[in-house]
Design a protein around this nucleic acid. Structure first.
Lengths: 244, 244
DNA sequence: CGAGAGCTTGAGGCATCTCAACGGTTGTGG
DNA sequence: CCACAACCGTTGAGATGCCTCAAGCTCTCG
C-alpha cells in the first residue's frame, strides 16, 4: 500500500500535517496507477484538465517547439505534483511523461476544491508545495540565463540531492537518478554532447561520481562553490552537511 | 483617482468581475504610492512579506548571483502583481524595482486571506492572474533554453504587445516600452551588446521599429514566424490581427 | 561643465553547438 | 537463436553564435 509518505515528508518541512487530513486525501485520490517507463501523462482528457501526484518514480513536463526542440519544465520526484499549474491556467501546450516506471495518482480541479472545503490546512500546504515548484522553475530560469554549463549541472545535482533528501531518497549524498543525459540537456538548455563532456569534467575532478544511474556527491563544498548554490529558494531545510 | 482599470481588463479575460468586489479590493488596497524611476520595491520589510500591485508604470523582479550577474524574472506592467509568488514561498533572495516612474499599491498576505473570505470570486481571479504570470516565466524558460537571440527578442516583443493590448496600452501594434537594452538583456539571458545588434537586425529587416521607447510591430506575421509564437500560454485572447 | 545612463560599433575569443561516428545494452520480431 | 532497431553513453573535429573588451557618441541632470 502506497501511503504518500514522500508527500508527507515534503509538506512536513513547511507545516505540521494532520494524519487525518492525509487520510482524507488518500481517500479522494483513490487507487494508484502503476505506469511503465516513458508512459505519457495526459494533462487534458476529454476537455478536462488532469494532474498527477507522483507516489514513486520520476516524471517530467515539457514543451515542444515548432522546430522539434524540447524544453523540460519540471522534473518531478516522489511526492511532487505534475500538471498543477496547468490546472489553473488551462493552457494546453504542455506535455508530461514518466521517466522510468512509477506509481501515480490522478486528480482534477474538483478534488482541489473539495480539499479546500474539507481540509483547508492540507490544501494550503499543497499550495505551498506548488509555490515551491514555481521556485524551482525560477531558479532554473537563472540557470539558463546566467550560469555556464558546469555551473548549471553542479547546481542541478545539488538541487536534486536536496529534494531527494527531503523525501528520504538521498542518504550521505548518494542517490539514484534515472535521468538520461538527453533529458538533462533538455532541462538545462544544453546539448547531450555537452552534458556528457561537462559531467566527465566534474567526474574527473573528483567532485562527483555518476554511473549506471547512481550518483554520489564527493565534494559538496567545492560543488556548491562552483554552482553558487544557496538553497534558500527551496524549503528552509539546511543543505547536506556531510558526504559520507 | 486610480481605479485599477488595467487589473479589471486583465481579469475580464478570464471571468466576469463583479464591480462591487473590485470596490472591496480598492478599499483594502488603500491609497496608492507614486514612485520614482528605479525605486526599489522591498519584498520583505520587518520580517513581513510585501507584494505590490502596479497601477501605472513598469516594474520587475530579479535575482542577483554571487558573480554580480542579474537575471530578471518578471516584467510587470499595469495590472500586474509583483512579489505574489514570494508571498507564499517566503523566499528572500528575490529583489524588485520600478523601471520608470509609476503608481503602485502595497499589500500583504492578510489582504489575500481577507479577499478569500469576502470576495472569493475575485480572489480566484487573482490566483488565475498569478498562474498566468507563472506561465510567462515558463515561456521565458523555453526562450532561454531553446531559442536563439533573434527568436527570443521576437518572441519577447510579441508577448509584450499581447499583454499591453489586453490592458489597453497597445493599439495597432504600437506601444511604449521604457525597458533599456540592458534590462532586456538581463531578462533574455543575453548581453546588452548582443541585444543591440539583434534589435538592429530586426529593425533593418523592416520587422519592427523601436525608437525613444516607442515600439511598432511592422510585420506581425514574419515576426511570429521567426519566434514560433503561439500565445495560448497567455489568456485565450487572440493575437493581434492587423498592424495598422 | 562633469557624471551617469543609454545606445552603438569594432575586433577578437571562446563556450557551446553541429555533424559524424563507434560500442554496449536492451528489447523485439522473425 | 539471431538480426535488427532503439536507446544510451562516449569521443573527435570543425563551425558559430554569442561574449568580452574597448571605445565613442548623445542626452539628461545636477
Amino acid at each position: 500500500m502506497y501511503t504518500l509518505t514522500a508527500l508527507a515528508s515534503k509538506l512536513a518541512c513547511h507545516t505540521v500535517v494532520d494524519p487525518a487530513e492525509l487520510g482524507v486525501l488518500r481517500e479522494l485520490l483513490g487507487r494508484p496507477h502503476v505506469f511503465d517507463a516513458r508512459r505519457e501523462l495526459p494533462l487534458v482528457t476529454e476537455g478536462e484538465h488532469r494532474a498527477w501526484l507522483i507516489a514513486e518514480g520520476w516524471a517530467l513536463t515539457y514543451k515542444l517547439l515548432p522546430t522539434g526542440a524540447r524544453q523540460v519544465i519540471d522534473i518531478a520526484i516522489a511526492g511532487d505534483m505534475i500538471g498543477f499549474r496547468e490546472l489553473l491556467l488551462r493552457n494546453t501546450d504542455t506535455n508530461a511523461a514518466m521517466v522510468g516506471p512509477g506509481v501515480v495518482h490522478e486528480f482534477g480541479i474538483a478534488m482541489i476544491e473539495q480539499l479546500f472545503r474539507d481540509t483547508p490546512a492540507l490544501a494550503g500546504a499543497l499550495m505551498w508545495a506548488s509555490s515551491r515548484d514555481e521556485g524551482l522553475v525560477v531558479e532554473r530560469l537563472v540557470d539558463l540565463g546566467r550560469r555556464s554549463a558546469i555551473e548549471r549541472i553542479a547546481h542541478f545535482v545539488l538541487e536534486l540531492e536536496h529534494r531527494l533528501r527531503v523525501v528520504g531518497l538521498s542518504r550521505m549524498c548518494r542517490f539514484r537518478c534515472p535521468l538520461s543525459q538527453a533529458v538533462m540537456a533538455d532541462a538545462l538548455g544544453l546539448t547531450p554532447i555537452h552534458v556528457n563532456r561537462t559531467l566527465r569534467e566534474l567526474r574527473s575532478s573528483g567532485l562527483l561520481s555518476w554511473r549506471d544511474g547512481s550518483v554520489a556527491i564527493l565534494d559538496y563544498a567545492r560543488l556548491a562553490e562552483i554552482a553558487g548554490y544557496d538553497p534558500t529558494y527551496l524549503d528552509g531545510v539546511p543543505p547536506a552537511s556531510a558526504c559520507g
